[in-house]
Nucleic acid binder design. Structure first.
Lengths: 123, 123
DNA sequence: TCCTTCTATAACTGAATAGTTCTGAAAGCG
DNA sequence: CGCTTTCAGAACTATTCAGTTATAGAAGGA
């Protein structure tokens, strides 16, 4: 996954209104009016949030009559989850990384010869 | 996990510089100068990014002499991964969509600030 | 066609963000 | 003690973002 895709994906998830919209879309596809109904927010504000979600790939949209229905696309969340899983695995399985890090630090060399970068995320 | 915690966590992950800092910290703890070295960015800028990561709970800090070492804390990523796992469940199995959705709704992710607010308890 | 409904866009405001430079504070060292 | 190193904070700028109201456009229904 490209870095700017992670940018827009995490940025999209960083807003509580947008997370609530995703939750709502798990129940099923919905029009803008249906999505806006629970919020004390104007319709254009919801349209903007949907645009952000669409740009992040989390939502796809289609027209039915005059309405536009949003559909949840969870594949990007799979990517993001896998991104974070790499950190989880590192955190769960490594116990002596501080000692190793200090050893590397004291050698005044940034080359990590003891712990190769097999567990590192790519971005 | 509270909603504003997810806000700051996802917002922290939405920046490529901060993700690179996290990746660097997987090699081992590092001082601000060591973290800033690969970037074409001023030292205060890196300090600000570290502050964001610290506020998101992704990094803890300690002093060694005049340096301040950053340490990767992956526990918040575990929380966020579990949050997104609920969407993965939806994405993986199409049959229990409603169950997954109800699980998300009942998980009380939405707090008073981002809970959709009904105006009238009329029905 | 005219009218209604639904949604997007335009234009604007205020707040937050990412970066800069300059300065000051904290902790060792000579 | 004075000096150096390392980092954080202040002050400032430019950009982005989240929201508003007002309006325009797209698609159907009467």
């Amino acid at each position: 996954m490209r870095s700017d895709q992670l940018d827009s994906l995490f940025a999209a998830l960083a807003d509580p209104t947008r997370r609530a919209l995703l939750q709502r879309l798990m129940v099923g596809d919905a029009s803008v009016a249906q999505l806006a109904e629970p919020f004390q927010m104007s319709q254009p504000a919801i349209s903007k949030h949907l645009k952000v979600l669409e740009h992040a790939g989390l939502v796809s949209r289609s027209r039915i009559a005059t309405s536009r229905y949003s559909h949840l696309e969870a594949a990007p969340l799979k990517e993001a989850t896998e991104y974070m899983e790499r950190y989880r695995r590192f955190w769960a399985t490594t116990f002596d990384r501080l000692d190793a890090a200090l050893a590397v630090f004291q050698s005044h060399e940034a080359t990590a010869t003891d712990e190769p970068t097999k567990e590192q995320p790519n971005d």
